[in-house]
Amino acid sequence: MDRIQAAGIVLPAAAMPKALYVPYTLHRGLLTISGQLPLQDGKPVFVGKVPGAVSVEAAQAAARLCLANLLGWVAAAVDGDFERIRGIVRVGGYVAADPGFNDAPLVINAASELLNRIFAERGRHARLALGVASLPFGAPVEIEATFALDA
């Protein structure tokens, strides 16, 4: 999709996780992508809690990387045919937050803005943005999403 490239996103190659879950499920036209971390080549790019160890700006960059990884799984699930996406049902964003940090939505906005830019009207979505005590591998952000697909 041209808008993905225009947004500066490089879709990663899909590599199956080494854990007891699948990266996505497809059920009755709903594609749910498991939570994605800010990893590149299987390694964390950002580590730590927001805003102490990771600035809000860096956490927003981490959210965009999570989204790139998420879209890589979307591409795998739809065989690269992003036109099958009718809309985005829901995005869940989790921010590893220092005590007293209340701006998780500001961090997750970076991913929401990208989705709206890439998918235009189809990118509008319901959302959850939460601050949490910790995330896998010390990541500052994790994002999951559910998409509605054409048959």
Score class of each variant (00 low, 15 high):
residue 1 M to R: 11
residue 2 D to S: 13
residue 3 R to S: 12
residue 6 A to T: 08
residue 7 A to T: 03
residue 7 A to E: 08
residue 8 G to S: 06
residue 8 G to R: 02
residue 9 I to Y: 04
residue 11 L to I: 04
residue 12 P to W: 04
residue 13 A to L: 13
residue 13 A to P: 12
residue 14 A to Y: 09
residue 15 A to I: 14
residue 16 M to R: 13
residue 20 L to G: 11
residue 23 P to F: 02
residue 24 Y to H: 12
residue 26 L to Y: 12
residue 26 L to M: 13
residue 30 L to Q: 13
residue 31 L to N: 02
residue 34 S to P: 07
residue 34 S to F: 12
residue 37 L to S: 06
residue 38 P to W: 03
residue 40 Q to M: 15
residue 41 D to Y: 13
residue 41 D to V: 08
residue 42 G to W: 08
residue 44 P to A: 01
residue 45 V to F: 10
residue 46 F to W: 12
residue 47 V to N: 06
residue 47 V to W: 08
residue 47 V to C: 07
residue 51 P to H: 09
residue 51 P to R: 10
residue 52 G to Q: 15
residue 54 V to R: 08
residue 56 V to H: 04
residue 56 V to P: 05
residue 57 E to G: 09
residue 58 A to C: 06
residue 58 A to P: 06
residue 58 A to R: 14
residue 59 A to K: 05
residue 59 A to E: 05
residue 62 A to P: 01
residue 65 L to W: 03
residue 65 L to T: 00
residue 66 C to R: 05
residue 66 C to H: 06
residue 67 L to E: 01
residue 68 A to I: 02
residue 69 N to H: 07
residue 69 N to K: 07
residue 71 L to V: 02
residue 72 G to F: 02
residue 72 G to V: 03
residue 74 V to A: 02
residue 78 V to W: 06
residue 78 V to C: 08
residue 78 V to L: 10
residue 79 D to N: 15
residue 80 G to H: 11
residue 81 D to Q: 12
residue 83 E to I: 03
residue 84 R to D: 02
residue 85 I to M: 03
residue 88 I to A: 00
residue 88 I to C: 00
residue 88 I to E: 00
residue 90 R to P: 05
residue 90 R to I: 15
residue 91 V to M: 10
residue 92 G to A: 15
residue 93 G to L: 04
residue 94 Y to D: 09
residue 95 V to F: 05
residue 95 V to G: 03
residue 96 A to Y: 09
residue 99 P to F: 10
residue 101 F to D: 05
residue 102 N to D: 14
residue 103 D to I: 04
residue 105 P to N: 03
residue 105 P to I: 01
residue 106 L to M: 12
residue 107 V to A: 03
residue 109 N to G: 11
residue 111 A to S: 10
residue 113 E to M: 02
residue 113 E to P: 00
residue 114 L to V: 04
residue 116 N to R: 14
residue 119 F to W: 00
residue 121 E to F: 10
residue 121 E to P: 08
residue 123 G to Q: 02
residue 123 G to R: 00
residue 125 H to Q: 15
residue 125 H to F: 14
residue 127 R to Q: 14
residue 127 R to I: 12
residue 129 A to R: 00
residue 130 L to A: 15
residue 132 V to G: 06
residue 132 V to C: 08
residue 133 A to W: 11
residue 135 L to P: 02
residue 135 L to Q: 04
residue 136 P to N: 09
residue 139 A to T: 07
residue 140 P to S: 05
residue 141 V to F: 05
residue 147 F to K: 00
residue 148 A to P: 07
residue 148 A to D: 09
residue 150 D to R: 15
residue 150 D to T: 10
residue 151 A to W: 10
